[in-house]
Design a protein around this nucleic acid. Structure first.
Lengths: 151, 151
DNA sequence: CCTATATCCTATCGGATCAGTAGGCTTTAA
DNA sequence: TTAAAGCCTACTGATCCGATAGGATATAGG
């Protein structure tokens, strides 16, 4: 399960991508899209620190996307908010950690199975962008048809 | 990330599947495979209640598989120990729960993306059995080639 | 320059989950 | 009868989750 925080982050990015005006305040976004105001504030700050969005302070302040929506992947956002995607620490590329009870990683039969899971989810999440999700329903499906991916 | 408990459960099932004798005691399994004895005890009990393994009490007691190894899937074990596989509650088949902040599920753009992730991981985990993992390294790969699966 | 309004940032908190431990109860074989 | 095994429930310390609180800082308009 992905965290509530990650869900809010993705929703917030979609809101920013959909935006017709050039920015939106936290309060507006929180109210219009039913997210807890202060929690959303934290999340947007994280996204800002990661360089995905930008902000303006003061009276007419607010947030907008910094990176183009088609360069922000779901994988990137999830790693940022929830940490590694990998189902086992020993399968994470960004945050590799040895399973301390496993003598021989190469021959670990559990690792082998989950390696395939990790590849499949990465194939989807690292190639699907905010712009893809934003686009018409069919598009995500077509993208996934391209990669050797989901059923 | 799957829990430590689920990892132990899978390892325990592999141990039972590999078994040459007809049963093994918790203490033996714990020691030989470096798992915390009492924790393992709980886990085997869960597996027993789920009908995957059987036990004999008393002096020469111990555990053995009840179901054939090729009928126990990774998905089954993970759901048993860790709960739903789905990345969102609204995508779980066994434990569906509406995302309470989502007005229209059918048009939810986040749900759509994670639906593909859910399908991909289910395709792998619900078809890979303990026997598959137990078998030679290549076999899991071949199975996965069959389903429209992992990269 | 002052003030209203926005973001920035750190701390805190209650509840849940995780990874075990503890310990008594029951069954079984010798 | 007793030692050795599994059965079962309760507890515990640590960490994480989903927020909330509140002050600091920046900005635009009057």
């Amino acid at each position: 399960m992905i965290s509530q925080k990650a869900k809010y982050a993705l929703r917030a990015l979609l809101v920013l991508a959909d935006l017709k005006t050039d920015s939106i305040s936290i309060a507006e976004m929180a109210e219009q899209h039913r997210m807890p105001r202060k929690f959303l504030e934290q999340i947007l700050l994280d996204l800002k620190h990661a360089g995905l969005v930008q902000s303006r302070r003061g009276v007419a302040g607010g947030y907008s996307l910094l990176k183009p929506a088609d360069t922000i992947t779901f994988g990137q956002v999830l790693r940022l908010i929830d940490g590694p995607l990998a189902p086992l620490p020993c399968l994470s590329r960004v945050a590799y950690r040895r399973c301390e009870d496993c003598h021989d990683e190469a021959s670990c039969r559990i690792r082998r199975v989950f390696g395939h899971v990790a590849n499949a989810t990465r194939a989807i999440l690292d190639q699907t962008t905010i712009a893809d999700a934003q686009a018409d329903p069919e598009r995500v499906g077509r993208i996934l048809g391209g990669i050797q991916g989901a059923a």
